[in-house]
Design a protein around this nucleic acid. Structure first.
Lengths: 203, 203
DNA sequence: GCACTTCTGGACTAAAAAGTCTAAAAGTTT
DNA sequence: AAACTTTTAGACTTTTTAGTCCAGAAGTGC
């Protein structure tokens, strides 16, 4: 099987698959079926590798899931980080909501938002995974909050508004859109929800 | 064991538990752990009954879940139907959002919204349950839409606004609040999100 | 009190899950 | 090409799951 030369300096047979490609496939399965709903067979089938290879390369199901989460943040969900880097508050907000509507209706992605679909509620032995996803979502809200504090320093956001509250409000809209998408809302429908949200915010 | 007289007209030993009480307990378990995450033992333990009694009284796990869903709609979620009966549009909207914030921070309820927590994403053999919950949520949005159409006839909602879009917008807020609650947002925090939403809508 | 019917407890079954193990295959280095 | 190391395939194990079964308990109506 063709592979690049062994990168880790060690000898031995090189891995017959690309870790990142396999991880992408696993991410999609978790996204569609949730942590508990995805079986090891679902995962390895999609990844195109054997069970042993999965365990050797990634550890176990939970470790694979955590890696998939990171990959989600840096891959499909990177648009959110980029939105926060826009120069003005207005652009930040528009780009966050428009980007979300586009993201959620991208036919290449499973319906809904990974961070909500994957492990919102679950059985007792997936409790740690659920907790990790809570932290993941809070982490996102915190990044928005910091950007809003910046906007407040820039005089773009009235001082009467609490950045933590406003970030929770934006998070509510973004994650609410995720549920609408999971319900099957189309791209146009999601954008019309964003139209209303923006209009109400005065944009 | 004390029971009312046999209501179904037939003879035999009467049921040793109250169906509705047991169903409430099952509903809570599904709400906390999701359909797939709730094991039969979780359920029967919470219901305080034996496995055989559960199967005899409710059918199987999926049938129990569907009954629990109906009970949710008529019990804890009834506040939403009541909100739609308010005389003015403003009251409908305020009551929906305020009611949701209260509902989601009621310490007697599990965190989050049953209709989202219970089966948003799941494995292949729970697909039908997932679909049923999509219908459940859409059904709710449709009821809001009808109320908004009424408001439009009453001249309370500008004719330029599409009731279907506006109902999706409200659904986005309500379900987004559910995720915030699942993240651990407090009652005050949820109400401050609602403050922002209402203020932006001009209320 | 007796015949009858339905419920109940708990052991049992079958299927599916995650995770392990071993022998063979496939590269790498010298 | 030979020695070495790691990967791979797939069978295997263990645990957990939903669902079944049956013997006995507990009511009802006459």
């Amino acid at each position: 099987m063709r592979t690049e030369a062994n990168t880790n300096g060690k000898m031995g047979r090189p891995r017959g698959f690309d870790e990142d490609t396999a991880l992408d496939a696993a991410m999609r399965v978790f996204w569609e079926k949730s942590y508990e709903g995805a079986t090891l067979s679902d995962l390895t089938d999609a990844m195109g590798i054997n069970r042993s290879s999965m365990y050797a390369a990634f550890g176990d199901k939970e470790a694979l899931f955590r890696l998939a989460t990171t990959r989600y943040a840096n891959g499909p969900a990177a648009y959110l980080r980029e939105a926060l880097e826009k120069p003005t508050l207005r652009e930040v907000i528009e780009s966050t909501l428009r980007g979300t509507a586009d993201f959620l209706s991208n036919p290449d992605n499973p319906r809904g938002c990974f961070s909500v679909q994957a492990a919102l509620a679950c059985g007792t032995d997936a409790e740690s995974v659920k907790q990790a996803m809570i932290e993941f979502r809070k982490h996102g809200d915190a990044a928005v909050k910091r950007r809003l504090q910046q906007a407040q320093r820039d005089g773009e956001l009235e001082t009467g508004v609490n950045p933590a509250d406003f970030s929770r409000y934006l998070g509510t809209l973004v994650q609410g859109l995720g549920i609408q998408a999971a319900n099957g809302a189309t791209k146009a429908e999601l954008h019309r929800v964003v139209d209303l949200a923006l209009r109400h915010m005065g944009y």
